Computed example of a mutant assay.
Amino acid sequence: MDASAYHFLVDRMLGRLIAWLRIFGYDTKSALDMEPTPDEDTRLIDIAKAEGRILISRDRALIERAKKAGVQTVLVSSDDVREQLEKLMESYRLDIDPNMTRCTVCNATLREATEEDIEKLKNSEEVPEHLLNDKRTLWVCEKCGKAYWQGSHWRNILKTAEQVRNSQKPAK
């Protein structure tokens, strides 16, 4: 299913899952982006409800409260991100093809880098020089400016996506 169909809110215990959902193009808010407060669970429920987000957590009490408030939820128990994705896919038909559409850091949209962006990146140490010189496609976050490219890590991303796809059970 198109990544625009689902919007997620993930608690602070699932940092790696947040990045992976963003790699797959899903609008994923994170409790890690908020200041911790004593009423964080209530805030998460309120945000999920107001924005129509699916709340993902390892906290059973939070999930039960959210369900009672009418929020769609997924309770995950594994520490392994592949197993977390598999659990999520039991309830939702996710498209897990990695793409360059969302920043893994801030969740904003990415755009293909312009010549002006490339010139700015040449003055930083964020992107290896050979990537800037060989005209490889780069993407830049619209909000935080982080640069992305399909480097050697991309093979690992594709491999993980394939493993999750191969283990997929039909969504309910």
Rank of each mutant, 00 (worst) to 15 (best):
R58N: 14
V10N: 03
L21D: 07
L110T: 14
A66Q: 05
T114A: 00
D11Q: 06
G15Y: 05
K67M: 14
A31G: 12
D46Y: 11
D79T: 08
T37S: 11
K122T: 08
N99S: 09
V76M: 01
I96C: 10
R16Y: 08
D59V: 15
E35R: 15
D27C: 11
R22E: 08
G15L: 11
T28E: 01
D46R: 10
G15T: 11
T101V: 15
K29S: 08
Q84C: 03
E51Y: 01
L32W: 08
I45P: 07
S78W: 01
V10P: 08
K29P: 00
M13D: 15
I47L: 02
D97K: 12
I47A: 04
L55Q: 01
V81I: 11
T109C: 14
A50R: 04
I56P: 00
A61M: 13
S57E: 12
L88E: 04
S57Q: 11
D39N: 15
I118L: 11
L21E: 04
Y26S: 05
R12V: 15
A48W: 00
D95P: 09
E90A: 01
N123W: 12
D33Q: 12
A66I: 12
T73Y: 00
T73E: 01
T73I: 00
E112V: 15
A50E: 08
M100T: 05
V74W: 02
A19E: 14
E86S: 15
R58E: 10
T104F: 06
T42G: 13
F8D: 00
I118P: 00
G25H: 07
S77Q: 13
A69W: 03
G70V: 04
R60V: 05
E51M: 07
Q84A: 03
E83M: 11
I96T: 14
I54W: 00
G52P: 04
R60I: 08
E119L: 07
N99G: 13
G70Q: 06
D97P: 09
D95Q: 06
G15D: 12
I47H: 00
D41Q: 14
L32N: 12
L88C: 02
M100P: 09
V71E: 06
P98G: 10
Y92H: 03
A31Y: 12
R22A: 13
Q84F: 10
S78K: 08
T42E: 15
E90L: 07
T101E: 15
E119R: 05
G70N: 02
N123H: 12
K120V: 13
L21H: 05
N123E: 14
R111H: 12
L9H: 10
R65W: 09
I63E: 05
L85Q: 08
E115W: 00
D41A: 06
W20G: 10
K120M: 11
I47E: 03
E119W: 07
F8E: 00
D39H: 13
T109Q: 12
A50H: 04
D95M: 10
R111C: 09
G70T: 06
D33H: 11
R111A: 09
L21W: 03
R58V: 03
